[in-house]
Design a protein around this nucleic acid. Structure first.
Lengths: 176, 176
DNA sequence: TCCAGTTACATAACATGATATATAACTTGT
DNA sequence: ACAAGTTATATATCATGTTATGTAACTGGA
């Protein structure tokens, strides 16, 4: 077998390592979304829905801060979600530069569905993949990668009890 | 301030979280590369150089396995590195489908330079950012993100002693 | 009031990851 | 020896992240 150089180099290539594991997780989440929630919602759109659900309508800029992403990235994601009918933008009265993004009825319904299916399933499946990890970060990452390879999220979901989304979450901080 | 939803959601959005931290690390590494090594080598090209340095010439397919990436991604990276004069491909004699990728003299020289500058610096700076992390994965990721925000790698590098690359590495597994 | 600076968003261009698929070369069974 | 299957790579396309920059709207000081 060939050596995994990114893993072997440790701290030197931690950035590549994190992106790699992140992509595995997102891809496996996509599979679970199709199987378990019957949706083809792109995985990165889930945090947007969750943000708007937790905090109510937000401007593009506030969404970008809340998601920890660049503003142009959020603009593009929102445009896609608008064309999917999940969100709508209302121009602000006070400041005409600002467009406030809110969930449509369809978006609200999808959030409700995801709260009963995909979101708790992924939370439990990822928690399961992480449950025996301990020690230094690099060791835990190696363990997580191995766990996801051995038994992907879609398999872990099958053995998982149904669970309520709200019971898995800490309450949102509502801003004013 | 606005809530960091990706952090708040924990396991549910771990994939996005890992990609986000990975991108921060890669961006900060890019900055250090310019400042400390005087090079604009894209950060993701470093693992390719390291792989070829550790294991000698490799086929595209073996490189993809070694880096844990898709083959088309590696093909594109290699094409870019070829046009930069860092690697060259030699068609295999035994199997004419295979192109073996090896470092050029320029590539070898760059590896030697990076071993004295960027690679040990990043290793130590990232280790420094991770040095007080402990506990569950999500906690360590939060700590790492905070550490990189408080004091980026380029700052951490300045306080770091010069160090030998080889002393930081476990020996490569040479394959046969 | 109006100019200068700032802010919010959109747009353009690029980087880097993925999957799907075409093509050429190899291998295998008959 | 040759058809059928497999393998190695290239190419095309898409997704999703970035930075840089343009434009319109707001704000504040002379």
């Amino acid at each position: 077998m060939s050596e995994d150089v990114v893993r072997a180099l440790g701290y030197a290539t931690l950035g590549s390592r994190l992106k790699r594991i992140g992509e595995i997780l997102q891809a496996q989440t996509q599979t679970v979304a199709a199987e378990l929630a019957g949706t083809d919602l792109p995985t990165p759109h889930n945090p947007v829905l969750a943000a708007l659900d937790r905090q109510g309508p937000l401007s593009i800029g506030d969404l970008a801060k809340t998601l920890g992403q660049s503003q142009p990235g959020v603009t593009r994601t929102i445009n896609k979600m608008k064309s999917d009918g999940l969100v709508e933008s209302v121009p602000s009265q006070q400041d005409r530069r600002v467009t406030t993004i809110g969930l449509t009825d369809k978006g609200v319904a999808l959030v409700a569905h995801l709260k009963e299916t995909l979101w708790p399933a992924i939370t439990l499946a990822v928690a399961d993949a992480c449950n025996s990890l301990e020690g230094p970060l690099l060791d835990q990452l190696a363990g997580l990668e191995d766990a996801l390879c051995t038994s992907p999220l879609s398999v872990r979901c099958k053995d998982m009890p149904l669970q309520n989304w709200n019971s898995l979450q800490s309450p949102p901080e509502i801003e004013r």
